[in-house]
Amino acid sequence: MSKIIEKQALTQQAEPSGKMIEQIGVNGNSIENPLIRVSNDFSFWYGKAQVLFDLNLDIPNRKVTALIGPSGCGKSTLLRCFNRMNDLIEGIHHTGDISINNQSIFDTSLEIISLRKKVGMVFQKYNPFPKSIYENVVFSLRVSGRNKKSLLDETVERSLKRAALWDEVKDRLHDSALSLSGGQMQRLCIARAVANDPEVILMDEPCSALDPIATGKIEELIVELKENYTIVIVTHNMQQATRISDRTAFFYLGKLIEYNDTKTLFTNPEEQQTEDYVTGRFG
């Protein structure tokens, strides 16, 4: 047998070393002019259970940032911190800070309603209200007392166009939202989030309940939406993160392991744990 084959045995012994990983990559948690800044070792507890540990990261304006990691790593908890959705849970507390546009979201002078207008959210399972397509989009405007028909009409058209749904539903705006397909319902939820003209749209596994065609449409939409909005998306789909995100943060057991531009993180990760996770060797 040739020398090459003999050498293989040597490699198999040497291979697990992190040698090739050590030299590479700039693990940039900080960036210039971020829209969202998680700082001062942000940590978060549900009662006595600490789920996020000492986080510091900057999320850029008008880019797509993906949060990845195995179940229970805290990525959805962090996402829900950005619009203080976790406030609805009893016994939570945090240390450190999160700011959007240099204003702390925990500032006592900040109204939570205005924060949630600024930071919209799209959930894993599409959740349209049992109302018409039109009423779903204008729901938040009506809640805030804005009922002028021209304003509502203009918002519906603009939001549905931004959610790439207008052409499919413009002739049946007053049909029930529940008559739409799954992918269309999810885009309606995005239109509903867009109607408030937020700065940030949070997405918690928005495609996990959709087929590949509907997923493709949502992914296209996310890439278009970043022209106007900052998107933070939680996904378990590594390939989805590579397709749509500009930066990716990898979490494990509540800690930020690596945060970098997406291409670097998925082709040449700096940390062995990231390498193992993205190649499917644990998680």
Partner: peptide
């Protein structure tokens, strides 16, 4: 099967 990182390389 869309490999990543070192597997892709």
């Amino acid at each position: 099967q869309a490999p990543l990182a070192r597997d892709l390389r």
